[in-house]
Nucleic acid binder design. Structure first.
Lengths: 152, 152
DNA sequence: CGCTAATAGTTAGCAGGCTAACGAATTGTC
DNA sequence: GACAATTCGTTAGCCTGCTAACTATTAGCG
């Protein structure tokens, strides 16, 4: 039996921690009928104003087809609006509706609450270290996989 | 406009880093026709031998209904076997098939490769710190959410 | 013994992640 | 100006995550 201890792996800890984080976030958002990803869409729109789907997908680091259905649901629920771009008929501009404004206020509350829970007992310095280390791992994995060696 | 900077949030870095990790892992496993979660199933079976679905779900930290379909696909592909438990007719014991053995060897290779890529440039001490901090965040979020205050 | 409670696995339904492939529109180039 | 390459949004199909609700079985307790 080949041994590989999942418990010792960075991947294991990334997986379970992120899963917990998303679950906590989504649980906290249930009363407002919204999800983690949907809240992130509203977050970017609040920061940047109208964005095309490609721009939004880029900022959220997800693929465009993934975003399409998230936006479909949000449009169905009246949280966002798709508007044809006046200068490029391929593009659609995504904007937050008036209905989403009060929801966004609640999201910020939830986000701060979850963050406080998540970082309980960690110093500011430790939190900064965590972000730095995660950033490094992220960057490492962004690079192309090592060139295909003619292995075997 | 309420401001909440996603880029500064621990949740943001957890999300994007874990996503990259899973994508890299899944990409590396494509040649073997298997996924990250499926490889984890084989990992636990290699470590522990036969397990019931509830035990397996517990170790993988996912809900039983999520595991059911993962196992359905693995059974369809001949990687695992479901066997009725002789002493408890509710339970089914999950075991790895002979066909999965060579696949498991490949998985270990992939896992080590991804881990090496992910931790490139990090000292052993930094890797340990990362795991410790992730463990703390995970533990924090495992606790019940703060008792419902009669807010508003 | 018998009834209730708890447990194991499943199904259904929803949200989200990906790739491949496609039509419509724009850009670039000759 | 016309044709190829690129970009944008979408659809289809697969895998993974959750909760709620169901069946079958076992455990607990009077």
């Amino acid at each position: 039996m080949l041994d590989y201890d999942f418990d010792e792996s960075i991947g294991y800890w990334l997986t379970v921690t992120t899963q917990r984080y998303h679950r906590a976030f989504n649980d906290a958002l249930v009363p407002y009928g919204i999800t983690f990803r949907q809240s992130q869409v509203l977050g970017w729109l609040a920061l940047e104003g109208e964005l095309s789907q490609a721009e939004l997908a880029g900022k959220m680091m997800i693929e465009p087809p993934t975003l399409v259905r998230i936006l479909d649901r949000m449009e169905r629920d009246g949280l966002i609006r798709r508007r044809p771009c006046p200068t490029d008929r391929r593009r659609k501009l995504i904007g937050a509706t008036a209905k989403s404004k009060p929801v966004w206020a609640k999201i910020v509350e939830c986000a701060k609450g979850i963050r406080a829970r998540a970082t309980d007992g960690l110093t500011d310095r430790q939190q900064a270290t965590l972000k730095t280390l995660l950033g490094r791992v992220h960057e490492n994995l962004l690079l192309q996989p090592p060139a295909e060696l003619p292995d075997r």
